[in-house]
């Protein structure tokens, strides 16, 4: 039985396999519409989410399966003080696979020690969000043709941005990658990622505060939101929230085939005028996310394709 807690739980060849299944789903959706008939996905969302929960639910429905679950902790037994372990043991009696989001870091790992069905981490606090990374990877594959030889700019909240951490982990396994880290000092990438992942893999990187200057060398620009819910102090959030706003003017010097990504939701870090630019890929990313979640569900439920 497999779990997906961290993107590194999947090998490079498994990611390749998932992207191939996702591409096949895009080309032949009808082939997959009954693959998970009579199977149930439980979405246990102890923290609010629109995109990820709906993406999982849509993925399971498009595979012909059913969905049960809750969308906030208040409507579950967690409000009565039930432990995560007990919740997943119970839900495992009803569902074949669980997608779980929790505000506490490491909650899905704790759940996986007790659950008798596969656990998919759908976001654990500011820590990991591996299925967003799967969406990001399919976007990169579809838009750039592969994962090697890319200069990737990561901009905004690199400290609390879990999608950034997972993406760096995933991309560090490919050839000839370069990272450009663009953030205010207070939101810079934690040392355990900088030293423990980027430097450990001998990947060249630069750190800068200047988005406009950095953008011209990039193949991918990954924008992130400054996340209010990760701050203990409201004043710090207000001071930093508008640090980087991407506009068409700032894209003037960027490559014509730049791929602008964002895990969404955005607040104001990408001006709406950018949406019409051919380099904006963030809504495609949402769609790709659903296909990768479909591929993941198929793989973890060991459905024959």
């Amino acid at each position: 039985m497999r779990n997906l807690i961290d993107i590194l739980d999947l090998s490079v060849s498994e990611i390749e396999e998932l992207t191939q299944i996702a591409e096949d789903i895009i080309k032949n959706p009808e082939k997959y519409q009954e693959k998970c008939r009579y199977k149930k996905l439980a979405t246990l969302f102890f923290e609010p989410s629109t995109r990820t929960r709906l993406s999982f639910e849509a993925a399971m429905m498009e595979l012909g399966g059913n969905v049960i679950g809750f969308s906030e902790a208040n409507s579950s037994s967690a409000a009565k003080g039930e432990s995560v372990s007990d919740t997943v043991k119970t839900v495992g009696c009803y569902a074949d696979i669980i997608a779980m989001r929790h505000p506490k870091e490491g909650a899905p790992l704790a759940a996986s020690f007790k659950a008798e069905v596969p656990i998919i981490n759908a976001g654990d606090g500011g820590h990991n969000h591996p299925t967003q990374t799967l969406a990001d990877l399919l976007t990169i594959k579809m838009e750039k043709g592969g994962f090697d030889n890319l200069t990737i700019g990561l901009c905004g909240d690199l400290k609390f941005g879990r999608t950034v951490h997972s993406l760096i982990n995933a991309m560090s396994r490919y050839k000839n990658i370069r990272f450009v880290l663009i953030s205010p000092e207070e939101l810079s990438l934690p040392d355990y990622i900088k030293k423990g992942v980027i430097e450990k893999n001998n990947i060249p990187y630069t750190e800068t505060r200047d988005l406009e200057e950095a953008v011209k060398d990039l193949d991918i620009l990954y924008m992130t939101r400054v996340q209010r819910e990760r701050f203990f102090n409201e004043a710090d959030y207000i001071r930093l929230k508008d640090s980087y706003i991407l506009t068409l003017e700032k894209l003037a010097n960027a490559k014509k085939d730049l791929c602008v990504m964002h895990p969404l939701p955005r607040v104001n870090e990408i001006s709406p005028e950018v949406d019409e630019d051919s380099r904006a890929c963030y809504f495609k990313q949402v769609k790709y996310g659903k296909y990768m979640r479909m591929a993941l569900i198929l793989k973890f439920l060991e459905v024959e394709i």
């Binding site: 432990s83 372990s85 505000p103 506490k104 870091e105």
Partner: peptide, 14 residues
């Protein structure tokens, strides 16, 4: 010691 860690709230966790 991380207050955001699941080990800060989950009973009986290793």
């Amino acid at each position: 010691k991380n207050p955001r860690c699941i080990t800060s709230v989950e009973q009986g966790i290793k």
